[in-house]
Amino acid sequence: QVLVIRIKIPNSGAVDWTVHSGPQLLFRDVLDVIGQVLPEATTTAFEYEDEDGDRITVRSDEEMKAMLSYYYSTVMEQQVNGQLIEPLQIFPRAC
């Protein structure tokens, strides 16, 4: 299952990153890619938005798994409803 992660860049749009092994993705892998997209920032975590629009911070593989399972459940709903699949949007955080 292909996963598209949209890395939101403060004040300048976003970069889409296509991942072919989504469920095996590790927290460190995401930080590495964010580091390539935002080389001047030191990113130690990132956030995503849940169904209520609240930002949830991801700082570990466990939290990463929770984010992915949340995302895959929303994708299934979108597929069932015949909607366009939205990329998983993440917001890098420099701490």
Rank of each mutant, 00 (worst) to 15 (best):
L3C: 06
V33S: 03
Q89I: 10
R28T: 14
I90E: 00
M67F: 03
E51P: 11
V58E: 03
V15P: 01
D54E: 14
G82N: 12
S21G: 11
M67G: 01
P39Q: 07
Q79Y: 07
Q83I: 07
I90C: 04
V33E: 09
G53A: 03
D50Q: 11
Q83Y: 08
I5V: 09
P10G: 06
T74Y: 14
F27A: 01
V30D: 02
E49D: 09
G53N: 04
L25C: 11
V75D: 04
T18N: 06
T57R: 06
I56C: 07
R55Y: 06
Q24D: 15
I34H: 00
L84D: 15
V75R: 13
F27L: 07
M64Y: 04
V80M: 11
D29W: 03
D32E: 11
R6N: 01
D61Y: 04
D29M: 00
D29R: 03
L88G: 03
L84P: 15
L88H: 00
I85D: 07
G53R: 04
T18A: 07
Q83H: 10
L88K: 01
Q1I: 13
Q36M: 11
Q89H: 13
P23M: 12
E63S: 06
I5S: 02
E62H: 10
K8G: 04
P10Y: 03
E47G: 02
D16L: 02
M64S: 01
W17M: 09
S60G: 12
Q78T: 12
D16N: 07
D50L: 15
A14V: 13
Y48L: 00
A45K: 02
N11Y: 05
M67H: 00
R28G: 13
T43W: 11
S60I: 03
L26Y: 03
L38Y: 15
L25Y: 00
G35Q: 15
E77R: 13
D32F: 01
Y71H: 07
R6E: 01
L3Y: 09
Q79S: 13
L31I: 13
Y72N: 11
E62I: 08
D54K: 12
R93I: 14
K65M: 05
L84S: 13
G22F: 12
R28L: 05
Q24R: 09
P87A: 04
I85T: 06
F27E: 04
E49Q: 10
N81S: 08
L38G: 05
V15F: 14
V30M: 14
Y48E: 02
R93S: 13
G82H: 12
S69Q: 13
V37T: 06
M67I: 01
R55S: 02
A14K: 06
L3S: 02
A45N: 03
G82C: 07
S12D: 15
E62Q: 11
Q79N: 12
C95P: 12
A14Y: 14
T43E: 12
P87M: 05
V30R: 02
L25N: 01
I90V: 05
G35A: 12
S60R: 03
K8C: 12
A41K: 13
F46R: 02
L25H: 01
A45L: 03
D16H: 00
T18Q: 13
D54V: 13
Q78R: 14
Q24Y: 05
Q24L: 03
R55K: 08
Q89L: 11
I90A: 02
S12Q: 15
S12P: 07
R59E: 08
V2N: 14
E40Y: 06
D29L: 01
M76D: 10
L31F: 02
G82P: 09
D52W: 11
I5F: 12
E49K: 07
C95Y: 10
V58T: 03
R59K: 14
D52N: 15
P39C: 03
V4F: 14
S73N: 13
I7M: 04
M76T: 10
A45P: 01
D32G: 13
T44G: 10
Y48C: 02
N81R: 11
K65W: 06
I9L: 14
V80D: 13
G82W: 04
T57S: 09
I9Y: 06
V58A: 00
T42E: 09
Q79K: 13
M67L: 03
Y72L: 06
G22H: 06
V2I: 08
Y72P: 01
I5Y: 03
L84A: 14
V4M: 15
P39H: 07
S60Y: 01
R6V: 00
D54P: 01
E63T: 05
N11R: 08
T42A: 09
R28C: 08
Q24M: 06
G22Y: 08
V80C: 10
T44F: 07
S69W: 05
I85R: 11
A45T: 10
L84F: 10
Y71I: 00
E62R: 12
P23A: 10
A45G: 09
L68D: 00
S21Q: 11
F46C: 01
L38P: 00
A14G: 08
W17D: 00
F91E: 01
S12H: 14
M67D: 02
R55G: 02
P87Q: 05
F27M: 05
Q89S: 13
A41W: 08
L68S: 01
T74F: 11
I7L: 05
S12M: 13
Q89C: 14
E77Y: 11
K8L: 06
S21L: 07
P10R: 04
M64Q: 03
D16P: 00
D29E: 15
L31Y: 02
S21M: 06
E40G: 10
N81Y: 15
P87C: 03
K65S: 11
E62W: 08
E51K: 14
A41L: 15
W17E: 00
H20T: 10
E51I: 12
L31R: 01
Q83L: 10
A14T: 14
A45V: 05
V33H: 15
L31P: 03
V75L: 09
I5K: 00
F27Y: 07
